[in-house]
Structure formats: structure tokens, C-alpha cells
Write a protein that binds this DNA or RNA. Structure first.
Lengths: 111, 111
DNA sequence: TAAATTTGAAACCAAAAGGTTGCATAAATA
DNA sequence: TATTTATGCAACCTTTTGGTTTCAAATTTA
């Protein structure tokens, strides 16, 4: 079966899951609570994500805490980047965005 | 049927098609020649891409030339960007990359 | 220890995805 | 005009996807 990052993030439920665990590790039941589908369905989604390296699992007793591993998204990022020049005329605005990112990362001064 | 950019770029054949038409418009037969599958299969892929706004078609006599429209990739770009801070520690290298992009765009001086 | 909780995974199902062949139509050409 | 070329699309098929129910195993907890 095909198992790559592009396919992994194609599913909206899986993108939501990644959003949920970005800031906080959650076990499978905790993730399941946020959706209308069964635990087994969520389990399968998370298995796909973990097989793609987009999440990692830490066993803790009978629970398994899942945390996002977003490094692999650089494959997507790189792929998109090669086309950026075709649509993003204003590279300066990207620079602005980058500045903003750095501010966020290295301490927000005024908020 | 679900029809969004994430799903559109999930298929490797469609990503290849986008790569082919990025620099040069091609008609459907010309695209088909590059693959092992039938014209009908390629036609379906291109239909999906056009329904997602990732390519546009210019009729020219009996031929239809397809050109890439990459603006819609910013949806993917934005989605990935929100996680960049989780994996990209070296924002400076992104700045370098940006510089390189600008050089490419505004004229390469020495090559 | 007995019961409850958390999970993994098998078996199964319906729908979607990706492919095919075949045919119709419109445009270009011999 | 008859033929070739380029395409749209229907009908059909197989595999994959995303979901379900069910059961077993391991860990807590009463």
C-alpha cells in the first residue's frame, strides 16, 4: 500500500488529528472524543500517520501518548516551494512573514 | 466527491503532471505520452486538477493546452507553514533560501 | 481477584479512486 | 468528402480507503 506524506495529509481527519496533537500529546481515546467516528477508525488514521513518521508514540502504562513529528512535512514544503515562484510575486511579503515567525520563536516583545 | 487541493496533490501521477506543465503548456496527448497509462486515465487526472483550479485549459482548435495554475497551492503552503516552527529550527537557512529565490527571479548574475 | 479501561487488530462492508475499453463528436487534413 | 486526429465521457472493473463491529490482551483500579 502506498504510504507517503502527501497521501497521509490528504485526509481531512488526519490533518485535524495533527492539529490536535501539535501542542499537546494525547492518547488515542482523547483524540477519538473529538470526532464522530469510532476509536478503531481513529486508530487506523493514527497508524497511517505514525507509519509516515508524522507522529510518534510514547507508551505510558496502558495508554499511548501521540505527539506530532512535523519534520517530514518538509517534503511537502519543498515540493510546494518549487512552484512558489509561479504564484508568489511578492517575495517581500514572505520575508515579512519570516520576520514574524522569528519574533514568535525568539520571544514576543509586545502583546 | 471530495475535491480539494490536498487530495489533488496526493496522487503521484498528478504531481508529475503539474511538474510537466509548470514551464510549458501541453495538450492532453503530449502529457499522456509521458506515462504508461491510457489517455482516459490522464484525462481524468487533469480534470481533477482543473476542478481544483491547479490547471487551466486553453482551447486551440481541436487541441486543449493545459497550463499550471499554482496559486491554489498556497492553501497547502499555509497549512504546512503553521507547523514549520515545530521542525524548522534554523530559520536563517530559510532566509538563505529566500535570497536564492530572489536571485533566480530577479536575474542570475554569475553562472 | 474481579471489573473497568485502553489499546491492537482481524473480519467485514460500502464507497471512492484509478484504471480500462469503446464510442461519439469536432477539427484538421489528404 | 473521407480519413485522421484530439478530445469528452459513459460503462465497467479492481483495488484502496475509510468506516464498522467484535474480540483478545494488557494495565489499572475497586
Amino acid at each position: 500500500m502506498r504510504r507517503d506524506v502527501f497521501q497521509a495529509i490528504a485526509d481531512p481527519t488526519r490533518r485535524e488529528i495533527l492539529g490536535m496533537i501539535a501542542h499537546k500529546s494525547l492518547n488515542i481515546n482523547a483524540v477519538t472524543e473529538q470526532f464522530d467516528v469510532s476509536r478503531a477508525a481513529i486508530y487506523k488514521h493514527m497508524k497511517i500517520l505514525s507509519e509516515c513518521g508524522l507522529l510518534e508514540i510514547r507508551q505510558k502504562g496502558r495508554e499511548r501518548y501521540c505527539e506530532g513529528k512535523f519534520e517530514r512535512l518538509n517534503e511537502v514544503s519543498d515540493w510546494v516551494a518549487q512552484y512558489r515562484q509561479f504564484w508568489e510575486a511578492r517575495l517581500d511579503s514572505l520575508e515579512d512573514y519570516l520576520e514574524q515567525l522569528k519574533k514568535e520563536k525568539y520571544g514576543k516583545s509586545s502583546e
